[in-house]
């Protein structure tokens, strides 16, 4: 064929399932999503019920057995004050799995609101708010965290607020571009021809149509948030002792690696990695399901 075009005729009169059901079935067919989701589900189960099947109390020290290598007694060995590493890894997901999702939720809510406002009003409002958000994005999370901790003291709430607010501009940017496209559609003009308020148009008319990109951005951000929480905890700005948190444990024990006590760090690091990978796989699956 000489002329080139690849668009195929999609019979448009096929009755299809509702959009949500379609996404759901598409997710069930996505191997990427199912694997990622299984990993995340595993860690969520550990966070909720970990203490019931952990062999030891994750906080109980046992100085005599300190720094014992992995054995049938202690599968992942023990740390410098004799706490069972296996039990600590199992229960260690609890804090990160509350802080990271809450931070992501905060980022999504704030980012969506900002994105709707900038995308809907455009013009001066957009210019001013967008420049401020860009300036905010230029500051590293760690520096914001440091300042916030100096000002507010360390707590989970501080971590949630810091990560939430530093991710909000990124989500706002995604939402804004989706809203700008929706704004051009005639249903927005139709709403104006009913004298609908800006608030109604933004949240009732436009918002439901930009949920898919928000959903994708949120799942992607969750992966980054987990990583950020672990990083802050490692640096001492995040989750505080005596929590068996993974980042915190690595921070406490990484000095031991030089002495050959690798098991005090490796399993926590693997746990963080697996959770981040799980979330990213799930995010990939969601992205695929919403964009095919």
């Amino acid at each position: 064929m000489s002329a080139v075009q690849t668009s195929s005729p999609t019979p448009d009169d096929m009755r299809r399932r509702g959009p949500l059901a379609e996404v759901f079935f598409s997710l069930l067919r996505s191997r990427t999503f199912l694997v990622g989701f299984a990993i995340v589900l595993f860690w969520v189960a550990c966070a909720l019920f970990g203490e019931h099947f952990a062999p030891y109390d994750p906080l109980a020290d046992d100085i005599i057995n300190a720094l014992a290598p992995p054995s049938s007694e202690h599968w992942f060995g023990t740390d410098q004050i004799g706490r069972d590493v296996f039990s600590r890894v199992i229960v260690g997901s609890r804090d990160i799995l509350t802080v990271a999702p809450l931070a992501t939720l905060l980022a999504t809510v704030a980012g969506t609101a900002l994105g709707l406002i900038t995308g809907y009003f455009r013009g001066l409002v957009d210019d001013v708010v967008s420049r401020i958000l860009e300036a905010f994005m230029a500051i590293p999370v760690v520096i914001v965290a440091l300042l916030a901790i100096v000002a507010l003291g360390t707590s989970k709430t501080t971590v949630i607020v810091v990560i939430g607010l530093s991710f909000a501009p990124i989500i706002a940017r995604t939402v804004r571009s989706a809203v700008l496209a929706e704004r051009e559609l005639d249903y927005v003009a139709a709403a104006q021809l009913r004298h609908e308020s800006a608030l109604h148009t933004m949240f009732v008319e436009i918002l439901p149509n930009v949920v898919p990109p928000i959903l994708v951005e949120t799942t992607v951000r969750l992966g980054y948030a987990i990583f950020a929480v672990a990083t802050l905890s490692f640096m001492g700005f995040g989750i505080q002792p005596p929590s068996p948190d993974w980042g915190l444990s690595i921070s406490n024990n990484y000095g031991m690696i030089g002495g050959g006590f690798w098991w005090t760090v490796l399993f926590d690091a693997l746990a963080i990695a697996s959770l981040v990978i799980g979330v990213n796989l799930a995010a990939d699956g969601v992205h695929g399901a919403l964009n095919d």
Partner: peptide, 21 residues
Amino acid sequence: DDQIKAMQIVFQNPDSALNRS
């Protein structure tokens, strides 16, 4: 409001004019 409701429009493309949500 009276003036608004007195003049309405039927757009060319109903996919764009009707909110799909």
